[in-house]
Design a protein around this nucleic acid. Structure first.
Ligand SMILES: [Mn+2]
Ligand SMILES: [Mn+2]
Ligand SMILES: [Zn+2]
Ligand SMILES: [Zn+2]
Lengths: 136, 136
DNA sequence: TTCTTGACTTAGACGGAGTCCAATGTACGA
DNA sequence: TCGTACATTGGACTCCGTCTAAGTCAAGAA
């Protein structure tokens, strides 16, 4: 994750304790935390960090493409540090767990030109739903 | 849409002016209105209808499978009367317009067993993103 | 037709998620 | 070390949605 901090610095961004902590908290595989979960974990390391700063920092990381926003339910958005390898999500309808998955083929290829209504289609997001081993 | 009202009655539900108006407002193709948009249009026909009733009625229609909820952005959910024919959505990143699309093949088929992590996968939702003719 | 009653509707309070702001603090180049 | 532009803070605010208590009414019974 210090890659990320280095990239932030290269963009002229100040390295603050808050940004460092948000980057640390978001490290790992299959990590899909809400902003408030990030805040709670950040507070454990830096008690005075504010909710607004967590939102700001997450927003910055999203805008430079280091983190992706994932909306799997009608609830809070989730933040995903796995931004370098394109992937889709498998969500448990029971407990809400989210796993990264890599379907084969390009999902865009399944949409014929006749079904594009003149749009310039640039991306496809797929959410697979089902029950995880614990919930089934 | 009186099909829908008939089905509601068969389930023992009272036919009220409010439910009738919500069903009427939601009729058509490529209709993906937010609850507040439904409310605004319903008010034009029945000025005293409340927001709570619109939410209640939409929720009932969703629970009997006559309407589907669609979350295309991080904003308000949209309500889609096209519940009988399975389909996916194409969303304009500029203006937010939503079109129904029918990709070929089963989107579930693209997810190999090795990528299912022991889940019982039952559905896949695909959101295609791009720019509509007006926005590009 | 009128009556009765439980289901429906209503307004407004409430809650979660996210944004915005003015005041305060601080990273870092000079 | 200093100055200052940028970052952080807490709290107010907005948007979307849910809940509740009180009033209303659809529809079966008589
Ligand atoms: Mn992911
Ligand atoms: Mn649709
Ligand atoms: Zn589960
Ligand atoms: Zn558009």
């Amino acid at each position: 994750m210090s890659d990320l901090l280095e990239r932030l610095r290269e963009r002229g961004w100040r390295l603050t304790a808050q940004r460092r902590v948000v980057a640390e908290v978001l490290d790992g595989d299959h990590v899909h935390l809400t902003a408030d979960e990030v805040h709670a974990r950040a507070i454990a390391r830096l008690p005075e960090i504010s909710r607004a700063t967590v939102y700001n920092t997450l927003g910055e990381m999203v805008s430079i493409g280091e983190v992706v926003e994932v909306a799997t339910d009608g609830r809070a958005k989730r933040y995903d540090p796995n931004a370098h390898r394109p992937h889709q999500h498998l969500v448990c309808s029971g407990c809400g767990t989210v796993r990264d998955v890599h379907p084969h083929g390009d999902p865009l290829a399944a949409l014929p030109a006749a079904e594009r209504f003149g749009f310039t289609v640039s991306a496809a997001e797929v959410t697979y739903r089902g029950l995880c081993p614990d919930c089934s």
